[in-house]
Design a protein around this nucleic acid. Sequence first.
DNA 1: CACAAATAGGAGGATATCAACCTATACAAA
DNA 2: TTTGTATAGGTTGATATCCTCCTATTTGTG
Lengths: 154, 154
Amino acid sequence: MDGLHTPEGERSTEADLLDCVCTNVRMASRVLTRYYDEVMSPSGVRITQLATLAAVAYHGPFTMKVLARALFMDRSTLTADLQPLAAQGFITIVPGEDRRTRMITITDGGLNAIQTALPLWRQAQSHIERDLGQARLGALLGELREVVESAQSQ
Amino acid sequence: MDGLHTPEGERSTEADLLDCVCTNVRMASRVLTRYYDEVMSPSGVRITQLATLAAVAYHGPFTMKVLARALFMDRSTLTADLQPLAAQGFITIVPGEDRRTRMITITDGGLNAIQTALPLWRQAQSHIERDLGQARLGALLGELREVVESAQSQ
DNA sequence: CACAAATAGGAGGATATCAACCTATACAAA
DNA sequence: TTTGTATAGGTTGATATCCTCCTATTTGTG
């Protein structure tokens, strides 16, 4: 019954690792991203890009630092993520009054991209909502928020 | 009260996007990965690498295809992910009997790396467990599994 | 004012992730 | 056996992600 490569006494360790919060969330992240991206592919906008565009559109303009914090990501990650969005003309990046900063602003093209992607995003989201129900889904997002807070509290 | 850059009638759209399952899971993935990686950094093993090593150690040897499926990731992703593990001597990649395949096997160095990383992983995991409790955490992982199934059911 | 400390952001390098295409091997049908 | 199809993996190119430095600008202190 024991696998050849399962050292003695490692069984409980294996079970523990199967419950790794980080690994399980990353797995879900992979599967969900593949799914949303596939459904949204006709729009040419990825789910990661829609999230960034929406943040800028509904709460911008932002500096890099503030936007990165809003998205819970590293500033240098945001620098990379914004390149394709700026190249497509969905956002503009211009120096702020404080010349150290850059102001990120949505463009008409960016608003347009959001509107194009939204129906497809709704389609993907609705599929998950139908299967789980809004109540369980809302609870899940709440629990995720708590996990995030726990991980951030040092 | 209204932000200057929130177009009229977009309020519900914004609220909808805030509840995007994929975006929220990705956010949690970023924060959790940063946290686990920081705690585990003295071991030199990342949480992503520990997950892969553990799968190979406890259930391998695997072919690329089977391991990729077990980790819910693309085969080409796995090809890239295995490079640093092979370079450090934690796994071996050798042709299988079917010469199209490659068998991925854990090495003594790989088992050693797991043992070195485990206490630090436990430390990170325990912190989350303490804050949320095992019951809620178990439920969260269960809900994530359902979301994954929903996203994979086409 | 001059200089030191703090802050904002970018560059470089490494890993993670996928889709699309390509090659090598195995299998199956004629 | 030959040929065609199916399968396993790799390569390429793009995006995503982080950390560690580095530069430019601001602010604070003498």
